[in-house]
């Protein structure tokens, strides 16, 4: 069985990528299972999808803990422990990253023992990047048994609601990435069966209700949740242009913009989710947005 886990952010199309890959496998005659898993169910929040493919009926279900291939659509997720990108990775698991950086960057930064393969998104004419098709095309190249024809068919089936020009662009993107990664064709190894250990069960003790009831005993504990990591676009305020009207503070749905005594705003980037409502509301157009990327320290 092949087990593939695809990590992305809500809205980046990783569910679609898993479906394109699943359909491509299916067209090759495999039994298939694909499914998304959402955490916060919010745009920008980490999520993943998984694909299983085998020549016989698949009985396994649920999350893939020991993947044969991990695909990452957004490199800023790797550092995020809650995203679980590196969970179950071994030296034999290729890590495929959609990025403009070199593979060596990730080896050094995360002390990775596995093979890292990077690919770039092909340029597009539209504002909607063909990310899902590209990730599926890249994964298909590494898996090695999916033909370009079936990859093309799979993109067409999964994106049939797109206008024909966008569909064509997605098909081209999948093929471009697929062709570029042919040096890595077939490097994904099906993991040998792992020995089944014994469970480390314990007898759960009875605890008093003050411990055992689902209660958070403190105010504002949500401050500890760094929802700023969900952000894909970072708003920046040009204080020279700012007219201190306070609109951004009023409209921010997360209360992540505070005003000083002169009415000038500051953004709390630990909790700004990058919705850009502030940018849309600012009458002085003093707010701009830049794509987030993993910071190089």
């Amino acid at each position: 069985m092949y087990r593939i886990r695809m990590h992305g952010r809500g809205g980046q199309g990783m569910k679609t990528a898993s479906r394109i890959l699943g359909t491509a496998f299916f067209l090759e005659g495999f039994e298939v299972q694909d499914a998304p898993r959402y955490g916060a169910e919010r745009r920008g929040a980490p999520m993943f999808a998984y694909v299983r493919a085998d020549r016989k009926t698949i009985y396994e279900r649920g999350i893939i803990v020991h993947p044969d291939l991990v695909v990452v659509s957004d490199d800023s997720l790797i550092a995020m422990a809650t995203a679980g990108v590196l969970t179950g990775l071994t030296a034999e698991t290729p890590l495929l990253i959609c990025s403009n950086r070199e593979a060596s960057f990730y080896h050094e930064r995360y002390d990775l023992k596995c093979q890292v393969i990077v690919f770039r998104l092909p340029p597009t004419t539209s504002s909607r990047s063909p990310r899902s098709s590209s990730c599926a095309g890249a994964a298909a190249a590494l898996l090695g048994m999916i033909s370009p024809h079936n990859l093309n068919q799979a993109v067409a089936q999964e994106l049939h609601t797109l206008p024909s020009n966008l569909l064509k662009e997605n098909q081209q993107a999948a093929r471009t990435v697929f062709d570029k990664l042919q040096d890595f064709k077939g490097i994904v190894q099906r993991r040998a069966k792992m020995e089944i250990g014994r469970p480390q069960w314990l007898d759960l003790p009875l605890e008093v209700a003050s411990i055992a009831a689902p209660i958070i005993h403190a105010p504002a504990s949500s401050l500890q949740m760094n929802t700023g990591v969900w952000r894909t676009l970072r708003p920046t305020i040009d204080l020279e242009e700012c007219i201190a009207c306070g609109q951004c503070n009023t409209y921010c749905p997360d209360g992540a913009i505070s005003l000083n005594t002169e009415g000038k705003p500051t953004i709390d980037y630990d909790h700004c989710k990058g919705c850009l409502i502030c940018l849309a509301q600012c009458p002085a157009q003093a707010i701009t947005a830049q794509p987030e990327q993993e910071e190089v320290s």
């Binding site: 069960w201 314990l202 759960l204 003050s210 209660i215 005993h217 504990s221």
Partner: peptide
């Protein structure tokens, strides 16, 4: 069905939730 690792994870979450520390593990 519950494992030692699951309880350890729960203890971490209870710490964040400010569940009484002195009563931890107390069996009635």
């Amino acid at each position: 069905l519950y494992t030692a690792a699951e309880l350890t994870q729960m203890r971490g979450l209870q710490e964040i939730a400010k569940t009484q520390k002195n009563s931890r593990g107390h069996t009635l």
